[in-house]
């Protein structure tokens, strides 16, 4: 079971059990924070056993590649947080590899440019894992709406 809280709960994902989400937190979605995507990422991670930051892989992604790229990014991110840097990615990601995967997943959808810029290897891997490219999608949508407006 994974739960995120300090003095109050924002979300909880039980292995083979319910997903518990705070509606208050759902309404605070934006700027990289998204409790729904975060908890669903934990659920995906749990499909192949306890949440450890490595979900069941597909699309030719090997465990070795996932492990190498994610542990390098996790180590780098944890060092930055430990050194007191104000990271645009939620420092909560430095808790453990399972939280790192869940926070990177919510940021991947919420603020793809930040993940692509800071951790391009993770961005590329998540594009293959989630079978979509949110950054290209957002750029296309933005240019389509500006064309429509002009």
């Amino acid at each position: 079971m994974i739960h995120e809280y300090d003095d109050v709960l924002s979300g909880e994902a039980w292995e083979g059990g319910p997903l518990i989400i705070s509606w208050h937190d759902v309404q605070m979605a934006g700027d990289g924070y998204n409790v729904v995507i975060h908890e669903f990422a934990h659920k995906l991670d749990m499909l192949n056993g306890a949440a450890d930051g490595m979900p069941a892989l597909h699309s030719g992604i090997t465990e070795a590649e996932w492990e190498a790229k994610f542990s390098a990014a996790y180590d780098d991110f944890s060092l930055r947080v430990d050194s007191g840097e104000e990271t645009p990615i939620d420092p909560y990601a430095s808790t453990d590899p399972a939280e790192f995967f869940a926070v990177m997943s919510e940021s991947f959808f919420e603020m793809p440019a930040v993940i692509a810029g800071e951790y391009p290897a993770i961005y590329g891997l998540l594009c293959r894992y989630y079978l979509q490219d949110p950054l290209t999608r957002m750029i296309k949508a933005a240019s389509a709406s500006s064309t429509a407006a002009s």
Binding site: Y5, D6, V8, L9, S10, W14, G16, L19, W23, D25
Partner: peptide, 22 residues
């Protein structure tokens, strides 16, 4: 797999330290 996994989803009404701090 998610769809065939857990059947229930609970939504609580509360605040969050993590969200608030962000």
């Amino acid at each position: 797999p998610i769809a065939s996994g857990s059947a229930s989803l609970s939504i609580l009404m509360n605040s969050s330290y993590r969200g608030a701090s962000r």
